[in-house]
């Protein structure tokens, strides 16, 4: 027993020293990305806690006073509002690669761009953000990005995701939202060692596995149809243009539910993505922005 206690004391002490050394090394060499903390408003809309800064892929990000990390032009005569999930948020690239930046550059600063991007945003949440910020930003045009699963994840009857803003298509009400495991997330993001091992794939656990693609669409066709009916009834889509991947499994349904001229479709190529990540790189953003600019030019030319 004496040997055991001596051993365990040594083991504990050594583990502690190892942990501190690893944590210091990870912080010194900036081996993990910083993730901004979130807060939630009374309507269930999630934004980031303002004035946070950090690094992601060695790129600096800053949360603006509105709770987003994108462009924040306001009071511009020609205002564009872009809303979407992590693709629009673009935390993994420098801010100079945001869609808004490319659009402004190509349109020779004729437009001001306000970006509302946050990872995990559902389509219904994007529409709620549109409703809230339309009065503040007063945009001439609104671009809403629909990512794969954004539609399905908007409907609580398909799969209840308590940390996402969803709508019940039975009652037509928005579901309550809460941030999942806030304390655990805070610990995970602050203890860099665990987060580092997690992103290196050591904990091979997939926390969120959403049943995707055609299978979901086939089994939930009626629910998805009803969702779009609610969407059209509850939200003013006059200024809205949807940005969508032409390979999206719901593309036919979306095309039939929304007017075709309300869609900007793009097709991705392999070199559009950040290595080892499903998000666009700067080239991807540039190419998508070209399509948006083309559409904007057409609209204003007519």
């Amino acid at each position: 027993m004496k040997i055991n206690s001596k051993f365990f004391k040594k083991l504990f002490f050594f583990t502690l020293i190892s942990f501190i050394s690893i944590e210091c090394s990870i912080r010194i060499f900036k081996l993990t990305n910083d993730i901004p903390q979130r807060e939630i408003d009374e309507n269930g809309l999630q934004t980031y806690v303002v004035n946070q800064t950090g690094y992601f892929n060695n790129n600096l990000w800053k949360v603006n006073e509105y709770g987003f990390i994108g462009l924040k032009d306001v009071n511009h005569d020609n205002q564009i509002l872009i809303i979407g999930d992590s693709m629009i948020e673009n935390i993994m690239n420098p801010i100079e690669c945001n869609l808004g930046y490319y659009i402004k550059n190509q349109m020779k600063e004729k437009y001001g761009v306000f970006e509302i991007g946050r990872s995990g945003m559902t389509l219904i949440e994007a529409m709620e953000f549109k409703k809230k910020y339309e009065t503040i930003i007063k945009p001439k045009k609104i671009i809403v990005f629909i990512n794969e699963n954004d539609v399905e994840e908007s409907i609580s009857e398909i799969s209840r995701l308590s940390d996402r803003l969803q709508i019940s298509i039975k009652s037509g009400d928005l579901e309550k939202v809460k941030i999942k495991y806030p304390v655990l997330k805070k610990i995970l993001y602050n203890i860099k060692t665990i987060y580092y091992l997690y992103i290196k794939g050591y904990f091979s656990v997939n926390f969120l596995k959403f049943q995707t693609n055609k299978k979901v669409m086939e089994t939930n066709y009626e629910k998805l149809e009803k969702f779009f009916t609610i969407l059209k009834l509850n939200y003013d889509l006059e200024k809205v243009t949807f940005l969508i991947n032409s390979n999206d499994p719901n593309i036919e349904l979306i095309e039939s539910a929304l007017k075709k001229n309300k869609l900007i479709k793009f097709k991705t190529l392999e070199n559009w993505f950040v290595k080892g990540d499903g998000h666009w790189n700067c080239l991807g953003h540039k190419n998508v922005s070209n399509l948006i600019v083309e559409r904007l030019n057409n609209i204003y030319a007519n």
């Binding site: 020293i17 190892s18 050394s21 690893i22 090394s25 091992l197 050591y202 091979s204």
Partner: peptide, 21 residues
């Protein structure tokens, strides 16, 4: 001894490939 252990641990954590099973 401990510095040797620690160096190896740091090598493993910082340079190891964890996604290969």
């Amino acid at each position: 001894r401990w510095i040797s252990y620690l160096s190896i641990i740091l090598f493993i954590v910082l340079l190891g490939v964890f996604s290969n099973d």
